[in-house]
């Protein structure tokens, strides 16, 4: 399986993401600069964290105007897995690929530490390797991770089981219903504030994030290897 890691000016988790895929998962991966205009050769799209365009105007707003984003939308429409982490999640909401928006943390602080997440839905292509209700430890690193959407959208998220991860125990940023990660209705675009790509090695901060990437690969293999 071949992954693309998008790179915007100001991305800073792109190398972590690359490392997770190449060294820990053992799959193919390439960096793709934001001005590129083709993602058709890739099977999965990873939108990494960071501060694209310095978070000027709003986090994710400028990145959403990049050339590559129309390709990301095409990939999402084609049903390819698209994962946005942290700033990547913010970009996907700005792009309208996921509902809602990320506001400033309620306590106005930049939070950087491991948190506990509960897997609320393990029947997605991103979470099949987790147990339903499993509590995992994954780091967060954000100042604007306070998920917000209107009531109608929240109802829809609940009805369709689109809330994939919630903060377990303490909610670090004030997000609605403790939401840490959501998926689109079709089930192929996941956005989350915590960083699974920083939890892929037991020696460095635990390996609870690795199953997320393994889930993606498993689903892809099942769909594409028919022999």
């Amino acid at each position: 399986m071949k992954f693309a890691v998008l790179v915007f000016p100001g991305s800073n988790c792109d190398i972590d993401m690359y490392h997770a895929i190449k060294d820990e998962l053992g799959e193919e991966v390439e960096f793709v600069w934001h001005s590129e205009t083709d993602l058709s050769n890739f099977d999965g799209i990873l939108v990494p964290g960071g501060f694209s365009y310095g978070d000027y105007l709003r986090c994710g707003a400028m990145a959403n105007q990049s050339n590559i984003m129309s390709e990301v939308k095409k990939a999402a429409e084609a049903g390819k897995p698209v994962l946005g982490v942290c700033n990547g999640f913010q970009i996907l909401t700005e792009a309208g690929l996921l509902p809602g928006a990320l506001l400033r943390n309620k306590n106005l602080k930049f939070m950087c530490r491991p948190v506990q997440l509960k897997v609320e839905n393990n029947s997605t292509l991103f979470t099949s390797q987790y147990e339903q209700g499993e509590v995992i430890t994954v780091p967060i690193a954000h100042g604007e991770g306070n998920y917000y959407c209107d009531e109608e959208t929240l109802e829809r998220l609940k009805e369709n089981n689109q809330i994939v991860f919630t903060y377990s125990g303490e909610n670090p940023n004030g997000s609605l219903e403790d939401i840490a990660g959501i998926i689109n209705e079709r089930g192929n675009v996941l956005g989350m504030m915590p960083h699974p790509e920083r939890a892929v090695d037991a020696l460095v901060g635990g390996a609870d994030g690795l199953k997320l990437f393994k889930s993606i690969v498993k689903q892809w293999r099942e769909n594409h290897v028919n022999n």
Partner: peptide, 8 residues
């Protein structure tokens, strides 16, 4: 399109 996010 860009200067504001009408969701928030």
């Amino acid at each position: 399109k860009v200067l504001t996010n009408v969701v928030i």
